[in-house]
Simulated assay, not measured.
Amino acid sequence: MNTIALFPGSFDPFTKGHEDIVLRGLRLFDEVIIGIGRNARKERYFPLDQMIPLIEEAFKKYPAVRVISYDDLTANVARSEGATFLLRGLRNTTDFEYENGISQVNRYVYEEVETVFLITSPHLAPISSSIIRDLHRYGKQVDEFLPYKLTNQPV
């Protein structure tokens, strides 16, 4: 029986911290699906049609990783993809408080799903998508925080 984990997030952008969670997740699961959730209330900084191919390129050597986008409840997507695990990374206790509530709701929607938390590797803990967006927005290079090269570098 294949164990499938859905790694959900907005990934705006997908960082080396996210990459670390996926690669470590591959030691636990047969397949990891990176699910980019669409949020109608939030406008993306990095367009989805740019982010998906960049993430796919970053994992081209890993056939057990695939990338999808979705506009639904995460638990519903996990069920439809055959995933019985949700994979999440935690940088700190604030992340845990936030993720704990979400994991309870996901279990309410899809009883068979388990959320697995991996603690972020220490050297990657300071990295967040919001910090990277701010750096990029104000013209700073961000490639050292990403597992791919951006095509729209700051001027």
Rank of each mutant, 00 (worst) to 15 (best):
Y148E: 04
E111A: 15
Q153N: 11
L87E: 11
L118P: 02
G35M: 05
T74Y: 06
K16F: 02
A78W: 02
I34F: 04
E99Q: 06
P8T: 03
P147V: 03
V77L: 12
F11S: 11
I34M: 06
E57I: 01
A40L: 10
F145S: 11
A125V: 09
F11L: 13
N106F: 12
I127F: 03
L23M: 13
G101D: 05
A78S: 09
I4V: 15
H18P: 12
P63L: 09
N92Q: 14
P154W: 01
F96A: 05
K149E: 01
P126Q: 12
H18L: 07
I33H: 05
E111Y: 05
K16Y: 03
T74W: 08
Q141F: 05
Q50G: 00
D12C: 05
R38I: 15
N106E: 08
E114S: 10
G139C: 12
E114P: 04
T74L: 08
F14W: 06
E31C: 04
D20I: 06
F85R: 15
V155E: 14
L135Y: 07
T94R: 12
I52Y: 06
L28G: 05
N92Y: 10
V65D: 01
S69L: 00
V67R: 15
L23G: 01
D49G: 04
Y110M: 13
P154E: 00
S103T: 13
G82M: 06
E19H: 08
S129P: 01
S80L: 12
G139T: 05
I127H: 02
